[in-house]
Simulated assay, not measured.
Amino acid sequence: MTSFVFVTGNANKLKEVQAILAAGGSGVSVTSQSVEVPEVQGTTQEVAIAKVKAAADKLGTACVTEDTALCFEALNGLPGPYIKDFLGNLGHEGLNKMLKGFSNTKATALCTFAYSAGPGQEPILFEGKTEGNIVEARGPKNFGWDPIFQPIENSGDKTYAEMTSEDKNKISHRYRALEKLRVYLTEKAEKEQS
């Protein structure tokens, strides 16, 4: 069985990751730990690599970090990896106001899982994307920007927040990135056993 520490203090993210991995029957064991790592500026990929390297050095074991970006097409990809700060300072309504005056509400939800086999090991990135639109907040407001992101794939009528966790986990950016990580870890474990 392959295992790793998921570096997060967010119980909702941990629950979602465990549910997605369990549904895939991966045999991957996940524990979590909150670790203070430097918040670097840069692209989603640069941020992910810096975080997982710092986490692996601090924990001394295999670990995974996750970075989520919400990229507004009208704003050339902003707020991108800074969505957490934008949401914290502006709220759902403020994020919507950022698009006032634009006819384009398209957005891409991007998730990047960074895996490190341990200290000094080169990180591997796994990305997943879901296309959608930014809408007025609908549904429970307890999980980040889910209430304002309406994915195109669910017939375009529900925000992430309005979807059941099972339905969201089938199409989410997090699912897509995590599925790539799951396949990698499963293949890695099979090679190690043979």
Rank of each mutant, 00 (worst) to 15 (best):
R182N: 14
L21Y: 08
S155A: 14
R138H: 12
T159F: 09
P81W: 00
F126S: 09
T186R: 01
L75C: 05
E136Q: 13
G9V: 03
E162P: 03
R138F: 05
E93T: 13
L75W: 12
R138S: 14
N133R: 14
G101E: 11
P119V: 11
I148L: 07
L185P: 03
F113P: 07
G120M: 13
S116C: 12
E39K: 12
P119I: 13
S155N: 15
G60L: 07
E39H: 06
M1H: 12
L78D: 07
G132N: 11
G118E: 11
H173D: 03
V135P: 11
E127T: 13
E16K: 03
M98T: 01
V17F: 12
K84V: 06
E36C: 04
L87N: 06
Q45P: 00
A161L: 03
G42V: 10
N169H: 06
A11Q: 15
Y160S: 04
F143A: 05
Y82M: 10
M98C: 09
G77M: 08
P81F: 00
G24R: 04
D85Y: 15
L21I: 08
A109D: 02
S116W: 06
N169P: 02
I152V: 15
K170T: 00
S103E: 14
K100N: 14
I124C: 01
A54F: 03
N12K: 15
G132F: 03
R174A: 02
G25E: 07
A69P: 06
A50H: 08
V183H: 04
A109S: 15
A19V: 00
S3W: 06
K191S: 14
A22W: 02
S172R: 02
C71T: 02
V40M: 09
T44L: 15
G132D: 10
N169R: 01
F102M: 05
G25R: 03
S29E: 14
L110R: 13
P79I: 03
G42D: 11
Y160H: 10
Y184Q: 08
C71D: 07
G77L: 06
R138T: 13
A19T: 10
A54R: 10
L75I: 06
T164V: 05
V183A: 11
E122L: 08
G101H: 04
V47E: 07
E190L: 13
I20C: 03
I124R: 15
I171D: 02
V30G: 07
A69R: 04
T105E: 01
K53Q: 15
G9L: 01
Q121M: 13
F126V: 07
K191R: 15
V52H: 04
K13Y: 08
K141N: 09
A117H: 13
S172N: 06
N154S: 09
G139P: 04
F102K: 04
F143R: 10
Q193A: 15
P140C: 03
A23F: 02
V64N: 08
Q150K: 15
N10T: 06
G91A: 11
N169C: 00
S34H: 04
Q193M: 12
S116Y: 05
N96V: 13
